[in-house]
Write a protein that binds this DNA or RNA. Structure first.
Lengths: 118, 118
DNA sequence: AATACATATGAACAAGTATTCATATGTAAA
DNA sequence: TTTACATATGAATACTTGTTCATATGTATT
């Protein structure tokens, strides 16, 4: 990683901009957590699950059939969605019903959709 | 992909839910585009670039130094951010100044941050 | 035209990840 | 306490992707 700036002349006007911005951006840890969160949304299967749950709570098998994917695949994905607190669940007999954890999910989906639909 | 529902008994109450939800969720193409968009946010380097540009327009070299990464890496990432219309740019002499393309970026970042900070 | 700076790009490698398959765990009914 | 259903999980594979390295293109200055 040495000489990483070999292409850049840093005796110029933007020196100050870099320093100011460097102080303003969130910490490394926060950026890490943020990108981790958005990674979750970066998969078609998970997006589909999240959209589905925005309309109704559903059990694993329902989601499997809706998405036409295997029960195993959905279960793996739900585990990821659970661990990032995007979905919550409740047990009822043999079934487990999943639903969205909070309103941020829908807001994020909405903003994303607005962006691509322009 | 045969027998993908072998674990599920579909002679039960949720039949109707599945059908209703199936009609409500966005099309495959839209889900694909959406997940593609969020993939962009799912990388620490790109998140950092987006945050940086939310404070000031910057040239490639400035961003490289700010992030302490190579010019090449940043250039590759900017290409991705350009092609998904998250950043725009203007030329000035030898430099190219990048900035955020629209307000959605900041809204999405803000929502994400709210989610992880709870 | 030649030089120097700023940015872009292609190929290759390393690291991460979504799905499948087989199987395990949990839960209720008989 | 068997049996059947619902969900979870570990390992393996195939696929994707971020960075590096080397080099190319673009742009101004001399």
């Amino acid at each position: 990683m040495e000489d990483q700036f070999e292409n850049c002349e840093y005796i110029h006007i933007h020196e100050e901009t870099v320093n100011t911005v460097k102080k303003s951006i969130p910490s490394e840890n926060k950026l890490y957590d943020l990108s981790d969160l958005f990674k979750i949304f970066g998969d078609k299967t998970r997006i589909k699950i999240l959209y589905a749950l925005s309309y109704a709570e559903m059990c694993v098998c329902d989601i499997a059939r809706l998405t036409e994917m295997t029960q195993s695949a959905i279960s793996h994905q739900l585990k990821i969605l659970k661990s990032s607190k995007l979905v919550k669940y409740r047990k009822e007999g043999k079934s487990i019903f999943y639903s969205l954890a909070d309103g941020h999910v829908e807001t994020i989906l909405k903003q994303g959709r607005e962006h691509i639909e322009e």
